[in-house]
Amino acid sequence: MTLELKELTGGYGQVSVLKKETFTVEDGQVVGLIGLNGAGKSTTIKHIIGLLTPRGGQILIDGLSLQDNVEEYRKKIAYVPEMPILYSELTLKEHINLTIMAYGLDHDKTWEKAHELLKTFRLDNKLDWFPQNFSKGMKQKVMIVCAFMTDARLFIIDEPFTGLDPLAVNDLLNIVEEKKQKGCSILMSTHVLATVQDHADKFILLNHGQVRADGTLDELKEKFDMQNGNLDDIYIKMSNEDQ
């Protein structure tokens, strides 16, 4: 699975938050999308999943754009939002059923996967609960379960590490690794640089809606001329460039 953004321009209303943003996510790659608040991380993600329409440029998943075939395009993506979004009227079990129906998945096989994931996140005894009874972290886990039980090839996770307990973060990273082994790609935006530094293959540094730099950690060190620096140092250096 490859995701390509070609000179993507867009944003909300008349204001262009993204200006000719270009990057790719290759097969079996875990990519960290990094930038300050307001750099355009969430806007980029909203464009990829099709909640916003680009004003210019192209977004291709395996060469397919949203306009070519909406249903096929969407089937390839699973998304975990920053703030959990659940249906207040559905129980946990029904959320899983609904996702199975929406993505046209095989009921029994998917439930098998779901059970495994629910067990990992210690939600398997809460199948009949309503979202109002869940804490924020639990809701996030529900979103993760619903996303990772699908047959999607591209997983987009917005800020996965805030709100989850350390154990859950570890579990999530294991699941990400598993998907990666199967050739899926993962794009995650985050501020928790120390975690993403160890688990991503490639980083995209966004600044003012443009890709300031991208590549592996070593490539970034070279670009910023900081041989001994870590991701944190590079990030701060990039932020200081504005001043």
Partner: peptide, 18 residues
């Protein structure tokens, strides 16, 4: 429980429980 009924599944439950 099939793809064509995704929203009916959601609407019916929401209507009854809300």
């Amino acid at each position: 429980e099939e793809q064509g009924n995704t929203y009916l599944y959601l609407f019916a439950r929401g209507f009854v429980r809300n």
